[in-house]
Design a protein around this nucleic acid. Structure first.
Lengths: 113, 113
DNA sequence: TCAGAAACTTGCATTATGCAAGTGAGTTGA
DNA sequence: TCAACTCACTTGCATAATGCAAGTTTCTGA
């Protein structure tokens, strides 16, 4: 999950970016569930903790996959959105979801796919 | 990476199985580079350490994605192979590779794809 | 002014990872 | 037959990541 790629392999480099337990969960929430705010991500059933969520949002922002916006300054509200690069992960998430549905019994479709 | 799924989401469950820095590297080595032996996995450019490799092979075996075989008892040699379930991860790996090649500059194709 | 929400930060314990060294069974060559 | 070597690990220890709870700051509305 750190910056330098372990090798020139596109699989290894992609995993360096999003290959951990939480990053793609956050991307999923934005891509399929339209979540935008910190509290919305916290409400997901996987129960990410606040420090991990902060660090993942920062990393995704640094990687150019997510944009952070202040959509209100008076109460100061933050929202997060996928950039075009972030949105391009859709086939990856889709393929993973299809595999999970087919091979892991305990999974079910949440309508959205 | 532990057994119990965090939720019923197919993406989250799949990540519980293979969502870390190393598991899919090992699967990649078997799927695209035909690697089978412990020492072959160690030789990959990402340089996995022996204890992590052992634990990942055990987890993949426990998850039914990989089979372990003793192909020689006299010098006692072990080989690892993808099961049908393991092989079914090919589209996932492919999609990740395509994304990496398109969006990460430092990556290049190793012919095999 | 007092409770409450949103978006965090901080501290600390637990778990995972990285690194180096060691082990044991068997093989090869001098 | 003895030393060196290979394969497939295991062990120990330091560092890094994660999980959990609590606290902070800024603002709102009653």
């Amino acid at each position: 999950m750190d910056q330098p790629c372990r090798s020139a392999c596109p699989i290894a480099c992609t995993l360096d970016l999003v290959g951990d337990r939480w990053t793609l969960i956050v991307v999923r929430d934005m891509m399929f569930f339209g979540k935008e705010r910190f509290e919305e991500f916290l409400a997901s059933p996987e129960e990410i903790s606040t420090n991990i969520l902060t660090s993942r949002l920062r990393q995704l922002e640094a990687a150019g996959l997510v944009e952070r916006k202040l959509y209100s300054t008076r109460p100061r509200r933050t929202s997060y959105h996928l950039t075009e690069t972030g949105k391009s992960l859709r086939p990856v998430l889709k393929t993973i979801a299809v595999w999970g549905l087919r091979h892991l019994e305990q999974t079910r479709t949440p309508e959205q796919f």
